[in-house]
């Protein structure tokens, strides 16, 4: 079976501090738009990121800094020659909505903007 692309989510504070990196700490995550669709568009709308396995400390810090969060969704291709696909998700017109469920170690972050970016299209 061909190796599958790896999805990675980073949650960063506005000045670059990494608050969560699934590539390093192994949390699983899903992203859906406001209609529950996983075929994600871009621009303005609603996107809900559900992350499971988040430590209480990480969730608390993300919640504390919710007004200044940047989320990054990367798809890293198994073929190193192919560039990483990158999306930036953030609160454009309103702060991200955060829902913590300590019982299931799930954190939900809902943002209103999703933008693809690359060095070729600055």
């Amino acid at each position: 079976m061909a190796e599958q692309p790896k999805h990675r989510l980073l949650v960063k504070h506005v000045t670059g501090r990494v608050l969560l990196d699934t590539g390093k700490t192994g949390e699983s995550f899903t992203i859906q738009d406001g209609n529950g669709d996983t075929r994600l568009g871009e621009g303005e709308g609603s996107w809900k990121v559900r992350i499971t396995g988040v430590t209480t400390a990480a969730a608390a810090e993300i919640n504390r800094l919710r007004a200044e969060l940047n989320l990054f969704h990367f798809i890293e291709q198994p073929d190193a020659e192919r560039p990483v696909r990158k999306w930036w998700m953030y609160g454009k017109h309103r702060h991200p909505e955060i829902v913590e469920d300590a019982g299931t170690a799930e954190l939900q972050i809902t943002v209103d903007a999703r933008v693809a970016y690359s060095n070729d299209a600055v």
């Binding site: 506005v14 200044e68 940047n70 930036w88 953030y90 609160g91 454009k92 933008v115 970016y117 690359s118 060095n119 299209a121 600055v122």
Partner: peptide, 9 residues
């Protein structure tokens, strides 16, 4: 520094 985003700064 390659392509990267900013907001509200």
């Amino acid at each position: 520094f390659g392509a990267h985003p900013h907001r509200e700064m």
